[in-house]
């Protein structure tokens, strides 16, 4: 059977298949997952009482969370078609809409990613002095001075410090929600069978946490911290691979529309780039490099870390674009 659109309807991004979400959305999902990963590690290692052994993970890494989230939000707003009405997003909270509760989660996580580093400002100052970055200590010292001078910011920071354990638990929960949300945002769309599978939430969370560990691995100057993150990242990659195989198995066992969706990656147009570039160069190669590093081979840590980060971004680009191609067949 041949299906044709008989009337002129060349609306941009609608035919031959929906194609309205491009790079900004993929990048936003990547940055959201990355920020979630960084904050999850900070909260976990703080709760484990490892803030001294893992200074970068607990104190320095979270400094990057806010700029990462802000860049993601900028891309998201840039992608809106009715930009001036963006405030409408915060006039209501709709539990049914992942985009709505995701936006609120992002607000909560942003507040935490300001308060968390502020509560560690003394240690960050010490860290910077130790490394001789005297120009940057001006900022931290100005913040410390400001905090001592004004009663309200001082009170807020002292309150946060006093109940940091409680706030770490809240941060951990909300970061996990943020990580899962980047996947659920897509899986909520029943019209696109590739996205519409429940494994996407955990898969995106795992991938996001993996990019978070890669980020710490890349920028930390503490050898032990880097090795630990390498080891954690290896298990995350293994889980991610398991989820990916599981996802395609589930689809292949599903209805026709789901089989077609999986076929995009199993013989279809995305096969080479998904398995060759993403799985090969973005998961298996860094896994091997990390394994070699743990065995004592000298490998620059930046290499596996950057491969993981690039792979994470590519994975989201592929899922977003392939998802929009996958749809239900229409037959009279």
């Amino acid at each position: 059977m041949e299906k044709l659109l008989a009337t002129d309807r060349h609306i941009h991004g609608l035919y031959p298949h929906v194609d309205i979400w491009g790079f900004p959305i993929s990048a936003y999902l990547f940055l959201g997952g990355l920020a979630a990963g960084i904050l999850i590690f900070a909260a976990i290692y703080y709760l484990l009482g490892k803030e001294k052994e893992m200074p970068f993970t607990v104190k320095i890494g979270p400094l990057f969370a806010l700029p990462i989230i802000m860049l993601g939000l900028f891309l998201l707003i840039f992608d809106l078609h009715h930009k001036l009405f963006v405030w409408q997003l915060f006039m209501t909270a709709r539990a049914e809409s992942p985009m709505s509760w995701g936006a609120w989660t992002l607000v909560i996580v942003s507040i935490f990613s300001v308060l968390w580093p502020l509560s560690f400002v003394d240690s960050i100052d010490e860290y910077l002095i130790k490394r001789g970055w005297s120009k940057m200590t001006r900022v931290t010292e100005a913040i410390i001075k400001f905090e001592h001078k004004w009663i309200i910011p001082h009170f807020i920071i002292m309150f946060f410090r006093k109940y940091r354990k409680f706030f770490a638990i809240v941060l951990l929960i909300y970061s996990i929600i943020l990580g899962i949300y980047t996947g659920i945002l897509l899986s909520a769309f029943n019209a696109h069978p590739l996205w519409n599978n429940p494994i996407l939430g955990p898969l995106f969370l795992t991938s996001g946490v993996s990019t978070g560990s890669a980020f710490v691995m890349w920028l930390s100057d503490n050898h032990k911290e880097r090795l630990l993150m390498s080891a954690i990242d290896m298990s995350l990659i293994a889980i991610e691979l398991f989820f990916i195989v599981h996802m395609f198995m589930g689809m292949e066992a599903g209805a026709e529309a789901y089989k077609h969706a999986a076929d995009l990656f199993l013989g279809g147009e995305f096969t080479a780039i998904f398995w060759g570039v993403f799985v090969g160069l973005g998961l298996i190669l860094p896994f091997t490099l990390e394994a070699l590093e743990l065995r004592g081979f000298h490998i620059p840590t930046a290499l596996p870390a950057l491969l993981i980060l690039a792979g994470g971004l590519l994975f989201r680009i592929l899922m977003v674009s392939a998802g929009q191609i996958s749809e239900y067949p229409m037959m009279p």
Partner: peptide, 8 residues
């Protein structure tokens, strides 16, 4: 806000 969620 023109996010496109409904179109998807």
């Amino acid at each position: 806000i023109g996010c496109g969620a409904c179109i998807e």
